[in-house]
Simulated scan of single mutants.
Amino acid sequence: MALENNSSDWMWLKLLCLTIITALIFEHSQFDIHISELFYTNGQWLIQKGAQPYAFIFYDAPKALLILLALYLITVLIIKYRQPSNNVSIIKNRSINQFMVPFSVREISYLLIILIVVPSTVALLKSVTHVSCPNHLTLFGGDLPYLNIWQNITAKTDSKCFPAAHASAGFSLYGLAFLPSLHKYRYRIFTVVTVLGWTMGLYKMSFGDHFFSHTLVSMLLSLTTTCTFASFLFKKATIYEGRNIESNTLIS
């Protein structure tokens, strides 16, 4: 049990190292170019930026739903904080409680932190890296050269395309997989969120707003962030649960 706890505690560091290595290896590679070429034929991207109904389905709708989710969680958190704990109040507020997620205050707070921190971290990195989008490059009809991360940071162009921000909003839902209440569903959640994030990422790739590596790094960075916060916020609960399991084993 102790070994499992130690391995879990350091998982965030392993993910961080993997994210950095992936960024350095894939961000400036022929692999990225070859994938983008699949979306770019005869001087045209697969779809035009802002073309409907794609923009609504893959950009506007997911963004709006994630904002509504954050507002809903904030509302639930406020209600839970202000709700008295006595039995009479619980009975009176039963009609309200049926519309609230069955998560603890700690879990809801964690989800809110993740929904804010993940996109904010990506946005901060975008402003520092200055990496160009594929549609900005001469390789794909633009007017900028294809540079690596360090060259882009030094050049300080107006480009802000790495990592992928839109996809990171979807990947921020990885936080659900780390909730103790949803532990038994974590693999299903991971699969669904991965599909959602990559769908949002592929939409942006289809008109040259991102390379493959931009979305890949965004996914790993989101996973690193969610794992890091979960390691600290749910550590005590995990240790307590582990001790209970060990105690029950000894008794039996």
Score class of each variant (00 low, 15 high):
Met1Cys: 11
Asn6His: 08
Ser7Glu: 04
Trp10Ile: 07
Trp10Ala: 03
Trp10Val: 02
Trp12Glu: 06
Leu15Asn: 08
Leu15Pro: 01
Leu16Pro: 07
Leu18Arg: 02
Ile20Trp: 05
Ile21Glu: 05
Ile21Asn: 01
Ala23Phe: 04
Ile25Asn: 00
His28Pro: 05
Ile35Lys: 00
Glu37Met: 05
Leu38His: 04
Asn42Gly: 00
Gly43Cys: 10
Gln44Tyr: 03
Gln44Val: 12
Leu46Cys: 01
Gln48Gly: 07
Lys49Ile: 02
Lys49Val: 04
Gly50Leu: 05
Gln52Met: 10
Gln52Phe: 10
Tyr54Gln: 13
Tyr54Lys: 01
Phe56Pro: 03
Ile57Val: 14
Asp60Thr: 15
Lys63Thr: 14
Leu69Glu: 08
Tyr72Gln: 03
Val76Asn: 00
Leu77Thr: 09
Tyr81Gly: 07
Gln83Leu: 12
Asn87Tyr: 15
Val88Tyr: 15
Ile90Ala: 15
Lys92Pro: 03
Asn97Gln: 11
Asn97His: 10
Val101Trp: 10
Pro102Leu: 04
Arg106Val: 13
Glu107Thr: 04
Ser109Leu: 07
Tyr110Val: 15
Tyr110Thr: 10
Pro119Asn: 05
Thr121Met: 09
Leu124Glu: 03
Lys126Trp: 06
Cys133Asp: 05
Thr138Tyr: 06
Leu139Lys: 12
Phe140Gln: 08
Phe140His: 02
Phe140Tyr: 08
Gly141Glu: 09
Asp143Ser: 11
Asp143Val: 02
Leu144Lys: 12
Leu147Tyr: 11
Asn148Lys: 07
Ile149Cys: 04
Gln151Trp: 08
Gln151Arg: 10
Gln151Asp: 05
Asn152Phe: 01
Thr154Ile: 11
Thr154Phe: 01
Ala155Lys: 08
Lys156Pro: 04
Lys160Ile: 01
Lys160Leu: 07
Cys161Gly: 13
Cys161Trp: 00
Pro163Met: 08
Ala164Met: 06
Ala165Leu: 15
His166Trp: 12
Ala167Val: 07
Leu173Thr: 04
Leu173Lys: 10
Gly175Phe: 05
Leu179Trp: 09
His183Glu: 12
Arg186Ile: 14
Ile189Leu: 11
Thr191Leu: 11
Val192Pro: 06
Val193Ala: 02
Val195Trp: 10
Leu196Gln: 09
Gly197Lys: 10
Thr199Glu: 00
Met205Asn: 14
Gly208Pro: 08
His210Ile: 12
His210Trp: 06
His210Tyr: 12
Phe211Ser: 07
Phe212Leu: 12
Ser213Pro: 04
His214Asn: 09
Ser218Thr: 14
Met219Ile: 12
Leu220Asp: 04
Leu221Glu: 10
Leu223Cys: 13
Thr225Ala: 14
Cys227Asp: 06
Phe229Ala: 06
Phe229Met: 06
Phe232Gln: 06
Leu233Cys: 09
Leu233Gly: 05
Ala237Trp: 11
Ile239Phe: 11
Ile239Asn: 06
Tyr240Arg: 13
Glu241Tyr: 03
Gly242Asp: 14
Arg243Ala: 15
Arg243Lys: 13
Asn244Gln: 14
Asn244Ser: 13
Asn244Asp: 15
Glu246Pro: 05
Thr249Asp: 15
